[in-house]
């Protein structure tokens, strides 16, 4: 039986973890196996963790304004390590102008403040299972 594994990571020096933990909790309650690595992860650490844990999706939570640099670095390293096929979700304080830039870098989806948890769960399912309904499994 396939169980999806998701890495929730906090790259950089950002200490805002309320959102990351709430999202991780919701994903657990939606039936996913969530690996949480705590604060202050470098892109290198995140990518190594993603490899060893063989995750199906990487979620980055960034509220420190350094999202462009950090996401770019994570995705570059993912390419180098041959895991660029893993979808990357980014959440946090992302100014509207930066959303297209993140998508261009290779981020799969972007979520800002006020996003309902149910929407996040739904989009994770969508991307992982190709499911588009909101109903749970």
């Amino acid at each position: 039986m396939k169980k999806y594994r998701i890495l929730i990571a906090k790259p950089g020096l950002d200490g805002h973890d309320r959102g990351a933990k709430v999202v991780a909790h919701a994903l657990r309650d939606a039936g996913f196996e969530v690996i949480y690595t705590g604060l202050r992860q470098t892109p290198e650490q995140i990518v190594k963790t993603a490899i060893q844990e063989d995750v199906d999706l990487i979620g980055l939570s960034i509220l420190s304004g350094a999202h462009l640099q950090l996401s770019k670095k994570v995705i570059e390293l993912m390419k180098k390590e041959g895991i660029a096929n893993i979808p990357v979700f980014v959440g946090g304080i992302i100014p509207p102008d930066d959303v297209p830039r993140l998508l261009e870098i290779g981020v799969t989806r972007v979520f800002g403040p006020g996003t309902p948890l149910s929407k996040i769960v739904q989009e994770v399912r969508e991307v992982l299972e190709g499911v588009t309904s909101t109903s749970g499994s």
Binding site: K3, A24, H25, L27, R28, D29, A30, G31, F32, E33, V34, I35, Y36, T37, G38, Q41, Q45, T49, E53
Partner: peptide, 13 residues
């Protein structure tokens, strides 16, 4: 939910 929160790794950074 059969989901899980796997946090042991944090301590092995």
């Amino acid at each position: 939910s059969q989901g899980a929160f796997l946090g042991d790794r944090v301590r092995m950074k």
